[in-house]
C-alpha cells in the first residue's frame, strides 16, 4: 500500500507543467464537445463512443421533452440539476441563447427527458476528467 502511494506521488511529481496545461486543454475540449478531448489525443474509438452515447442521450432527452435548468434559487433542488446540466458543455451555453431544452411539463416523459439530459451532463464530466488523465499521463 505504502509502495503504491509512493508510486502515485512520483507520478504527480513527474507531471510537467506542459502536461498539466495539455491536460486542462483536453479537459476543456472534452467538456465542450463530448469525446473531443479523446479524439484530439488520437483515441478515436473511445471518442466516437463517448460522443455517440452522450449525443444520443441528449437527443433522447430533448425528444422526451426534458428541460435544461438555468441557475435559479427559487427552487433549491434545481441548483443540483443546473450543476448536472452544465456538464453538457457547449450545448448548455447554446441553450441559454436559443430555445432548446425548454421542457414540456405537460408530457408524461418530462422527468425522464430531464434525467436523460442531466445524466448526459454528469457522464460528460467523467469523460472530460478521463481526457485530462490521459493527457497528464496517469492513464493510457
Amino acid at each position: 500500500m505504502r509502495k503504491r502511494v509512493l508510486c502515485l506521488r512520483l507520478k504527480i511529481v513527474k507531471m510537467s507543467s506542459a502536461m498539466k496545461i495539455k491536460g486542462v486543454v483536453m479537459m476543456v475540449l472534452g467538456w465542450a464537445v463530448p469525446g473531443l478531448g479523446h479524439l484530439a489525443q488520437k483515441k478515436y474509438v473511445r471518442g466516437a463512443v463517448f460522443f455517440g452515447c452522450i449525443a444520443a442521450m441528449t437527443a433522447l432527452g430533448f425528444a422526451h421533452g426534458g428541460r435544461i435548468y438555468p441557475f435559479q434559487t427559487e427552487n433549491p433542488l434545481t441548483i443540483l440539476a443546473f450543476f448536472a446540466d452544465i456538464g453538457n458543455g457547449l450545448l448548455y451555453l447554446l441553450s441559454r441563447f436559443i430555445p432548446v431544452g425548454v421542457g414540456d411539463l405537460k408530457l408524461a416523459t418530462f422527468e425522464f427527458g430531464t434525467a436523460y439530459i442531466a445524466g448526459a451532463g454528469l457522464l460528460n464530466f467523467l469523460i472530460a476528467l478521463d481526457a485530462y488523465d490521459i493527457a497528464a499521463g496517469t492513464k493510457s
Binding site: 463512443v49 463517448f50 452515447c53 452522450i54 433522447l60 425522464f112 434525467a115 457522464l123 467523467l126 469523460i127
Partner: peptide, 17 residues
C-alpha cells in the same frame, strides 16, 4: 424501455472509462 436504454448508455460509457 426508457430506463433500460438509459442504463445501456451509462453502462457503455462507464465500461469505456
Amino acid at each position: 424501455l426508457s430506463m433500460i436504454l438509459y442504463a445501456a448508455f451509462v453502462a457503455i460509457v462507464l465500461s469505456f472509462l
